[in-house]
């Protein structure tokens, strides 16, 4: 079949497939690129690791960092954060499964991991190259605002940080 303008069914089909395929890709691309990290399932992680600070996404550090930290919970940044053995084991397993260097790590997690020397096991997320790079435009005066106060307070601006969501569109910087 041929029309006056030279459109054939075959051409039309190719066009539809191309447009449809591209639309699908575009629709998925932001989701893949968004700063969303997988979080441990169940409530243990949130309850045990999220009561004193943001429940940091495991993908923000490599497994070796988490292993070191979990071995020193009696003196966790100077505080006693010791756990009972069942919780300790459950959390360690989840951290290893979702760490920045885990088998199923996203591109973003791999980038985080690749900026950390293999012989280092950083304990502060804020000291990793990726964190510094992502926050280099935040002025010191903003960090000092009462509702933020410290670099460790992710959830002050990333309101869904406890769900592993750090996307740019979900940032709300407190005005004081």
């Amino acid at each position: 079949m041929k029309t006056a303008s030279g459109i054939t069914w075959k051409n039309l089909l190719t066009l539809i497939l191309a447009v449809g395929g591209t639309t699908l890709l575009i629709a998925q691309a932001p989701a893949n690129d968004e700063a969303v990290f997988p979080m441990p399932t169940g409530k243990t992680y949130l309850n045990e690791c999220g009561s004193c600070h943001t429940a940091y996404a495991p993908g923000l550090l490599p497994a070796r960092s988490w292993r070191k930290m979990m071995g020193e919970l009696g003196n966790h940044f100077g505080e006693d954060a010791s756990l009972e053995e069942p919780q300790q084991l459950e959390i360690m397993k989840a951290l290893e499964n979702l760490a920045a260097d885990s088998a199923q790590a996203s591109m973003r997690m791999r980038r985080i991991n690749s900026a950390i020397p293999t012989n280092a096991a950083p304990q502060r997320i804020t000291e990793t190259g990726y964190f510094k790079y992502m926050h280099d435009e935040v002025r010191p005066s903003i960090w000092k605002r009462k509702k933020i106060g410290t670099l460790a307070n992710c959830i002050a601006c990333h309101s869904r940080a406890n769900e592993g969501r750090y996307g740019e569109r979900e940032i709300r910087i407190p005005q004081q």
Binding site: T54, G149, T150, I155
Partner: peptide
């Protein structure tokens, strides 16, 4: 609020 992390308690 936690003295070190500022997290709401």
């Amino acid at each position: 609020s936690h003295v070190k992390t500022n997290k709401v308690i």
